[in-house]
Amino acid sequence: MAVGRTPGQGDAGKAVHGRRGRTGQQEPLGTGHFQSGRDNLFAEPVYRRGAAALHALRVRIGDAAFFAGANEWLDRYRNSSATTGDFEAVMEEASGQQLDAFFNDWLREGDRPAMP
């Protein structure tokens, strides 16, 4: 993630909004059957959903809070380990918002919510 700058659509937009399938039609993110688990930990759908979740968070809390939170998270956990819960807490602090429902929808539920 390039923290501190506001990227354009480019490749990030492709990662968030889907890609062209074999038929040339736009494939929405999160369609089709995906087997989660150890063998697919680094599969493309995992990265695409992560990109979509970060994009949705940025839209939800705004650029200033998103980048402030990202910078704080990097500073706070540099050279150490951090959990998803740590990231969630930092983003809640930076935004001044309670984001449990957002993170549950995007990180813990099976279906991907609609893109903002």
Rank of each mutant, 00 (worst) to 15 (best):
Q9D: 14
D11W: 12
G21N: 15
P7Y: 02
Q26S: 09
R48M: 05
D39E: 01
A56Y: 08
A53N: 01
E27I: 15
V46W: 05
R49S: 14
G8A: 15
G37P: 08
V46T: 12
F34E: 08
K14N: 14
D39C: 08
G32F: 06
F42M: 09
R5L: 11
Q9R: 14
G37H: 06
V3H: 02
G32D: 06
R22D: 14
G4S: 04
Q9S: 14
A15E: 11
D39N: 08
V16R: 02
F42H: 11
R38P: 09
L54D: 02
G30A: 11
P28I: 06
D11L: 15
S36Y: 09
L54P: 04
T6W: 03
L54W: 06
F42V: 11
V16S: 02
R48L: 13
R49Q: 12
N40E: 01
E27V: 12
Q35R: 03
V46H: 01
H33V: 07
G30D: 04
G30P: 05
T23L: 12
D39H: 09
G32H: 06
P45Q: 03
G8H: 05
F34W: 11
V16H: 02
Y47Q: 07
R22Y: 01
Y47H: 11
H17L: 03
R48H: 06
R22L: 14
G21I: 12
R5P: 04
G50A: 07
R49H: 10
K14I: 11
H33M: 04
L41V: 00
R19N: 13
G18V: 01
V16D: 03
G24F: 00
R5S: 10
Q26M: 13
E27N: 04
V16L: 03
R49G: 08
A12V: 12
Y47F: 11
Q25A: 15
G32V: 10
D39R: 00
G10Q: 11
G37I: 02
F42K: 00
G24M: 04
A12K: 05
G24H: 05
G10L: 13
Q25L: 14
G21R: 12
Q35E: 10
A53H: 06
S36D: 08
Q26V: 10
P7G: 10
Y47G: 11
L54Q: 07
A52V: 06
F34H: 13
G50E: 05
A56S: 12
F42N: 09
T31H: 10
R38I: 00
V16N: 03
A53M: 14
L41F: 00
T31S: 15
V46F: 10
G18Q: 02
G8W: 05
V16F: 02
G24Y: 05
G30F: 09
A56G: 04
A15F: 11
L41P: 03
R20G: 05
R20D: 08
Q35P: 03
G24N: 07
R19K: 15
G13T: 06
G50N: 09
L41R: 07
A53I: 00
H33G: 02
G13A: 14
E44Q: 13
T31P: 00
G37K: 01
D11F: 13
R19W: 15
A2W: 01
